[in-house]
């Protein structure tokens, strides 16, 4: 079975600016990939080249076993970042038209359109014009338009932006359903929380270059911070004093909680007991790396200064709505 997406040394420049530099990427069939990075990292340009909307200056693209997405258009579903609808067209007509453009004209199409509209809560809007829908409703129609022809490869560019938490959850369910059906899914986001909730594999780009390509589990192991979150039970206890213990390497305050980093040779499960014995805890927790931490660590390795790091951190958290989506 060929891989769904293969990119080899893809490079694209716009004038002076290098948007994508030597990007290699393999997405196996049936995978659920997150394509992450801050705004302007080159995600949309990469996706556009992948789909033959833009042509690379250098490098090769292979999509669903074909030399170009042009030859596999009908098997791909695409939700662009810049998405729109025909404002005057009726919702049902629009979805049927989009499906027909993708070569899908079977008899059951209308029923599927109506069913899907019902599922996303737009059952009563099938006969309305697109311009009569709210922005969030329009976005749901756009998502359906990308999926209605049951594609083998689903590419979603920033699908969550602009949706409220309820609809973000609905979208996640739709994506997972397509994935279970066997579709390969690749979606880009600048908000790491979405990737953490959905993906089994993460590709990170920064300044047009791939900086990370690993499974979520692999990333967690590789970037394990080897530390614990700690909160004392008694307010009078000062966790700063823990730094004097011989098994502790460092203690750092982070808001209401403290990060306790044991020595390298101390096993973390042993550290739980040692910490609880040293000071009565309200909470002890194994600190897991977030994609945000991983990203910042990688970027720091490339020589980004403090200011740039905090900017990136803010960018990757995305809007407040994005953060709460997982709750």
């Amino acid at each position: 079975m060929p891989d769904a997406v293969v990119l080899r040394s893809l490079t694209k420049t716009f004038g002076e600016k290098v948007a994508v530099r030597d990007l290699d990427l393999v997405v196996p069939q049936g995978a659920l990939y997150g394509f992450i990075g801050p705004n302007g990292a080159g995600k949309t340009t990469s996706i556009r080249m992948m789909l033959s909307i833009l042509y690379p200056d250098r490098g090769e693209v292979e999509i669903l076993g074909r030399r170009s997405a042009q030859e596999a258009k009908d098997r791909i579903g695409y939700l662009p970042e810049e998405r729109g609808l025909y404002r005057r067209m009726k919702v049902r007509d629009l979805l049927e038209y989009m499906a027909a453009l993708k070569g899908c004209q079977e008899a059951g199409l209308r029923r599927r359109v109506d069913e899907w509209l019902e599922r996303v809560g737009l059952g009563g809007s099938a006969g309305k014009r697109c311009e009569e829908l709210s922005k969030g409703m329009q976005q749901k129609v756009q998502v359906l338009a990308a999926m209605i022809h049951q594609p083998e490869l689903l590419v979603l560019d920033e699908p969550f932006s602009g949706l409220d938490p309820v609809n973000q959850r609905l979208l996640r369910e739709l994506v997972l359903e397509q994935h279970r059906r066997g579709a390969t899914v690749l979606f880009s986001t600048h908000a790491m929380s979405h990737a953490e909730q959905l993906c089994d594999r993460i590709v990170m780009v920064h300044r047009g270059q791939k900086v990370l390509d690993d499974t979520l589990q692999g990333i967690r192991t590789r970037f394990d911070p080897h530390s614990l979150w700690f909160e004392p039970r008694r307010p009078e206890d000062d966790p700063a004093a823990l730094a004097s213990l011989d098994w502790v390497r460092s203690v750092r305050r982070d808001g209401p909680v403290w990060e306790v980093v044991p020595r390298e040779d101390i096993d973390l499960s042993a550290a739980f007991g040692l910490l609880a014995a040293a000071m009565p805890p309200a909470r002890i927790e194994l600190r897991r790396p977030t994609l945000e931490d991983v990203f910042i660590e990688i970027v720091a390795g490339t020589g980004a200064d403090e200011g740039e790091q905090s900017q990136l951190r803010a960018a990757m958290r995305g809007g407040a709505g994005d953060m709460e989506a997982g709750s």
Binding site: L51, I53, Q70, K73, D74, I76, Y78, L79, P80, E82, R83, G84, L85, Y86, R87, M98, L101, K102, Q142, A145, A146
Partner: peptide, 17 residues
């Protein structure tokens, strides 16, 4: 112009050349 300003263009060129 409408298709371009409505941003429906990219959806279309993903389906047709």
């Amino acid at each position: 112009i409408e298709e371009k300003s409505n941003r429906v263009m990219e959806v279309l060129v993903a389906a047709v050349s």
